[in-house]
Design a protein around this nucleic acid. Sequence first.
DNA 1: AGTATTTTAGCACGATCGTTCGGTCAGTCA
DNA 2: TGACTGACCGAACGATCGTGCTAAAATACT
Lengths: 195, 195
Amino acid sequence: MSKGLTTKDIILKSAFELTSKFGLESLSIGELAKTVGMSKSGLFSHFKSKEKLQMMVMDYAAQSFVDKVVRPAIEKERGIPRIRALMDNWKSWSSSYLPGGCPFLSAIVEFDDRPGKVRDHILNHQSTMIDTFERAVKVAQEEKQLGPSLNTEHIAYEIYSNMIGFHIYNRLLKNKAAEDMFEKTFQTILERSSV
Amino acid sequence: MSKGLTTKDIILKSAFELTSKFGLESLSIGELAKTVGMSKSGLFSHFKSKEKLQMMVMDYAAQSFVDKVVRPAIEKERGIPRIRALMDNWKSWSSSYLPGGCPFLSAIVEFDDRPGKVRDHILNHQSTMIDTFERAVKVAQEEKQLGPSLNTEHIAYEIYSNMIGFHIYNRLLKNKAAEDMFEKTFQTILERSSV
DNA sequence: AGTATTTTAGCACGATCGTTCGGTCAGTCA
DNA sequence: TGACTGACCGAACGATCGTGCTAAAATACT
């Protein structure tokens, strides 16, 4: 492992945290260099454009999501326990590893009218994330814990909407009942879908 | 009505559209001046800081939401038809009057880690919006179209989450089934809540 | 040890940011 | 008619933006 890789990781970790708090567009190279304690140009030479930095930050975020949310969930038993674990892991991920809001959500919102490589990159990651939910639902279906005829894409949509709704209620609105409503809605989705 | 008021409205309309596309932070005074065809300083003198401009843009957005979504819905009969109208009006509002994404959503996401007057302002508007949903649900309850014991705050949460989820699926992910899933989820929320 | 390669800093560039200032021009009212 | 007001512009400010160039410092390799 070369020194460069380590430095790059330190930079990306800081960039990830700044993105969580202020978004991908507000992430500036000068500010980032200041927080990691190196020169603007020294930092810049690791990436070679802001676009590449932004995409690497999203990769870093995706990696973090896979490590802390998806992988531990896959080790749980197939079916509903695995879906349950995805929800739990995601909640602890966003409370323990994100100093601000969800970097995917802000990236989506910021870039949905900015066509280009960064937008496509974000879209890819987000699709993968939703696919993960849908696959977990399908597995529960195979395990006969969920009805055989239900629309798995729709269930994934409802799970996703519930997560985003919770995230906004919890973070911006600071609504005390957010977690409770999130749980109740999640339970309802499952019950309505069970055999 | 003075000339200034008219000009200010033109500016705010443009600012509203730019915000819808690129967010409240990316809204720059120079760019805005260019799109409305006046000088940066001439435009600036109408607001007196970027903060005030941002807050006025949010006011403009809220006014537009009330005019196009809330008020027409209130003219419908009390109860479920009114909730239905809120959903329909909101969908046509975001497709007909927004050149980009929902300005409230982007503002929320951008500012939830930027304490200050702008953040508080956004929070106020968003709370009002959610209150509107909750009140419509309560009215349906009074009309005995929805169960007497249900948690109206929770229903408003589910309606809101469904809207945000649809918005993201529809706009960023360009998912063809987005509208269909939105409708099905909305129906489910109502059916589950009816007496 | 000395050489080659990578990593970092320094400096500068053109552009744009929000903001201020001085001034012009039209309209209002005494 | 003359004083005053408000809308608007052009120029400029200090700061910061992303991005190059060059050279020094640090590291890896022989």
